[in-house]
């Protein structure tokens, strides 16, 4: 059994993404002519959710992610409130796809999609080396 762990820089990347999203949302509501009280309430909710995501949800989610490759199957467990375990035999895998955003490229991370007939599994940002190794294990070709 080979187990892959999500690197710490994935947490940093997602924290940056959440902060960017928060700033963008605050900016939108700032531009929209809203009563002051409404803006304060909305901004407080957005900031609260952002803090919750950054300091509670994301660390817990990243910690809960566990990707294991066995002889012939991949098992992925993740989830904070709702825990999901996916078991996918290699033989049913058709192709793999990696997606890299410009920000993720700076960190050397990519998202991996495993595609079988009519459904797909996604694996949160992992380092490029880990992804190459995982794809080699799965035997579905290169990136």
């Amino acid at each position: 059994m080979k187990t892959y762990i999500i690197p710490k820089k994935t947490l940093t990347l997602w924290r940056i993404r959440v902060v960017m999203l928060t700033v963008a949302l605050l900016g939108i509501f700032f531009v929209i002519p809203l009563p002051k009280l409404a803006f304060i309430i909305i901004a407080s909710v957005i900031l609260f959710l952002s803090l919750l995501a950054n300091f509670w949800y994301l660390p817990k989610f990243i910690k809960s992610c566990r990707i294991s490759v066995f002889d012939g199957k991949v098992v992925i467990t993740r989830g904070v409130l709702i825990e999901n375990t996916h078991i996918m035999p290699f033989s049913r895998l058709i192709h793999s796809q990696t997606v890299q955003t410009p920000l993720a490229r700076l960190f050397g991370l990519s998202i991996l999609f495993l595609k079988a007939a009519r459904f797909r599994l996604f694996i949160i940002d992992m380092s490029d080396e880990d992804i190459t190794s995982l794809i080699d294990e799965l035997g579905v070709g290169g990136k």
């Binding site: 999901n84 375990t85 078991i87 996918m88 599994l121």
Partner: peptide, 28 residues
């Protein structure tokens, strides 16, 4: 094609789970 085990907080408390089985075909 895929087996998915899902556990909601209530399921964890009661020691139960839901299993979704998907057959690997065009119809899935």
């Amino acid at each position: 094609g895929q087996l998915k085990i899902t556990r909601f907080p209530m399921d964890r408390m009661l020691g139960i789970c839901r299993i979704r089985l998907t057959v690997c075909s065009e119809n899935a």
